[in-house]
């Protein structure tokens, strides 16, 4: 299947039997999932269960040993793949924000479209200002990351990813490093994004949030998907003992 044949009736992200090991430590032991366009997926599970590794493999930040990951029909781990094409389709937001500390909020958002996509500066600036407004940071355009709170930095990071106009957004525990008060504002931004129809894949510990916005929830433990389903059934009637134990601890 090549990307020419892909239609949005097919999964936008398709993960098939992915195996990943760091040295002898096997982190993913055959993970499969399909995500349709516009879906919001939450991946939950105990620390070290391979959630973050999986999401990083989708973006080719980590390579895989076996299996396949396709985005819009395009194999991600194809060595001939133009990485730039992939990065344009997939945006990623990190736990530690990872803003560029020597650039202002606005410059952080504008940098990739100008340097990577070679788009004209004034056009990018109009879009970047709109994005900053969208993440409710109007007036903070000229602040440096060091002058912003964690939640504000994280929202700049979201705007920075959106500036590349991606089809899929990956969120890797984006609220784990934040103070409880600022978690809410970031989650609200993501919720609005989901409501706009963006395909989102989230690794998260925010169960209430997952329950509210997710179309589908996957529970991973020790490198495999133990259980998955829509939030209502997943939270009400989990069948696997490992899921039950995890939910029991966290809820």
């Amino acid at each position: 299947m090549s990307d020419q044949d892909w239609t949005d009736q097919q999964p936008i992200v398709s993960i098939k039997d992915v195996h990943k090991a760091f040295g002898t430590l096997e982190v993913l032991k055959g993970v499969s999932m399909d995500i349709m366009k516009g879906e919001v997926i939450c991946i939950i599970g105990p620390s070290g269960s391979g959630k973050s590794t999986l999401i990083r493999c989708i973006n080719a930040l980590n390579d895989i040993q076996a299996g396949s990951i396709t985005i819009e029909g395009q194999e991600v781990h194809d060595t001939k793949l133009d990485k730039l094409e992939l990065r344009k389709k997939v945006g990623m937001v990190f736990q530690q924000y990872n803003l560029f500390p020597h650039k202002t909020a606005l410059e952080n958002v504008m940098m990739a479209p100008i340097k990577v996509l070679k788009q004209p500066r004034d056009e990018v600036e109009v879009r970047a200002r709109a994005l900053i407004k969208k993440v409710r940071l109007e007036g903070k355009e000229d602040s440096y990351p060091g002058e912003l709170s964690g939640g504000q930095q994280q929202r700049v990071a979201i705007a920075r990813s959106l500036a590349m106009d991606p089809d899929v957004m990956l969120f890797d525990e984006v609220t784990a490093a934040l103070d409880p008060e600022t978690v809410k504002e970031v989650l609200l931004t993501i919720k609005e994004l989901a409501a706009d129809g963006m395909t989102c894949i989230l690794v998260t510990h925010e169960m209430g949030f997952a329950r509210e916005v997710a179309d589908h929830i996957y529970f991973t433990d020790r490198g495999v998907i133990v259980e998955h389903g829509p939030p209502e059934t997943f939270f009400e009637s989990a069948s696997d003992p490992r899921t039950k134990e995890f939910l029991g601890q966290i809820l």
Binding site: L84, R87, K88, M92, F94, N98
Partner: peptide, 29 residues
């Protein structure tokens, strides 16, 4: 930090672009 460079990578920066736009300006400071 490696994670800052990873962020640049995920935004589609090439190695050379990451070096000139991120690594060098930060390392200089």
């Amino acid at each position: 930090p490696k994670s800052t460079l990873e962020a640049a990578e995920s935004l589609g920066f090439t190695r050379a672009q990451t070096y000139t736009n991120i690594t060098f300006p930060l390392a200089l400071r």
